[in-house]
Design a binder for these strands. Structure first.
Lengths: 272, 272
DNA sequence: CGCTTCATTGACGACGTTCAAGACATGTGG
DNA sequence: CCACATGTCTTGAACGTCGTCAATGAAGCG
């Protein structure tokens, strides 16, 4: 079974849909060599023969924005990588309080080898394309070829670092700092340099990005209510830290100002 | 250099000191075979020849309660395992707000292979004994023998899960629930079954443990102030959820009640 | 004994939540 | 085309939890 595409594949209508197919063109026939996440995903360290092996056991799946990918407690028959789009890991209490505990971007890994039920809810924030491997063959490959396990260790350590930074945000930052931190993280990861006519010298200070999250998703990320999220965004806008185009496109005239508002000690690394 | 003990080794005065030396007797001459964390630490999967190799490059260090082990940003020349005692990972903002982001118990691993400066402050909560490996030889071993990397991956995935559970606590729980959650976690990990005369049937419901943390450490763990910690502990005591002997010994007459107060969906696993 | 550190308790206020109303955009059907 | 419903977001007012500031208590140590 070389690949698989859900029957209900979304039609290409919105900008973000377009983007998915630009990032992973010709999805049905793509070979690992051509894969946009080839050098950052679990397969990053694989030699070409190992890549061939992966190529044989992989298949693609797509998920529509807003749809669940797996529910906590469900059996997971696959592990895999996000090829394009955003997904989230969330945890929920009986009374409905929910906390986002992970953010999955292209190249991030889904699933835990050696465990067969999901620990968290995973759902697609935007339309998502995933590169999946059935668990058993993947685990077999892991024990045979150290490259996959090595890369997975690196990635897991990075995620652990991210989770710990996030814990500081959740535990010790004010609502305003939380919003600024979230925007700084997003901007750092996928900012498009804004050509706002500020001149060459200042280009690196400015950034802009599309918010992939609803207010509710941001609230769940930051441990706030949607009202507080909304208020703090308004406040940052009023103070000139950000400006908005519509409700989902954020313009940051000065990243240093934003980072300062985030109260971050990680002082910079602007364009890393 | 088969081993090394700091000159300023603490004298055995307090109960927790005694405990360390009971858990790791004859520290100076201990061989991996005899090590109390042999089957849970990063060496858990090693064969006896690999163990010999580790034995040759390891050395012990002790740290007194309250002392720093490393500071964020410092060069780390070693990685290693906690053999006995508690240590904490903390992150601090410029203005002094600090958040604990990791809790290191016996068998937990310290340091990140492939990185040479510490990302967090590590400090000893109780007296701590560590089994250290100089980084370079350890990394060499990691690439030669898959058993170490495999085990490290498992451990890192476990830590990531713990961090994510913690994020729910930080982001969504009330102060009272936070305290109850902390006590439930500690009790689950090291409770002594209390013989409180409740009869055989109820023994499993009761537990008691020594609090290794100051109020400040608990506050940093939970994203609270020490005053709130103190008030909530008093409240739980007043409501009969816990009782105290002195300020640092906690008795839980009914673990189910405590878990209920923690608002936890992870409904049980009492004696895991 | 006083000194220091750690913990408890109270009074007060700020920050964020809750509850509620209204704005705005999108889609549906008459 | 408008009326109406729906979902997302914004804004206001009242409330409550938790943080701040301060005083006091308890325990360990020179």
């Amino acid at each position: 079974m070389p690949f698989y595409i859900d029957a209900d594949q979304p039609s290409v209508t919105s900008l973000s849909d377009m983007r998915i197919f630009m990032e992973a063109p010709e999805l049905k026939s793509i070979h690992c060599d051509e894969c946009p996440i080839r050098h950052r995903a679990v397969c990053a360290k694989c030699e070409s023969d190992e890549l061939e092996q992966l190529d044989r056991i992989k298949y693609y799946r797509t998920f529509e924005a807003g749809q669940p990918i797996v529910w906590a407690g469900d059996r997971m028959s696959f592990v895999g990588s996000v090829v394009s789009g955003y997904a989230t890991l969330t945890q929920t209490m009986e009374d409905g309080r929910t906390q986002m505990v992970g953010l999955l971007l292209p190249s991030d890994f889904v699933g835990r080898p050696g465990r067969d039920s999901a620990a968290y809810n995973i759902s697609a924030t935007t339309d998502v394309v995933m590169c999946c491997f059935r668990k058993k063959p993947f685990e077999d490959m892991m024990s045979d070829t150290p490259h996959i396990a090595q890369r997975l260790l690196e990635m897991t350590l990075d995620e652990l670092d991210a989770a710990r930074e996030w814990m500081l945000v959740l535990g010790r930052k004010t609502a305003r700092e939380k919003i600024a931190s979230l925007f700084a993280i997003i901007a750092r990861r996928e900012s498009v340099l804004a050509n706002t006519g500020l001149g060459v010298k200042n280009v690196a200070r400015a950034a802009s990005f599309d918010l992939k999250f609803t207010r509710e998703a941001m609230a769940d990320y930051l441990g706030l209510t949607i009202e507080t999220v909304s208020r703090q965004i308004s406040a940052l806008k009023k103070d000139g830290v950000i400006s908005l185009q519509g409700k989902r496109h954020v313009i940051v005239p000065d990243m240093y100002r934003l980072i300062d508002e985030a109260g971050d000690d990680s002082d910079g690394g602007l364009l890393v």
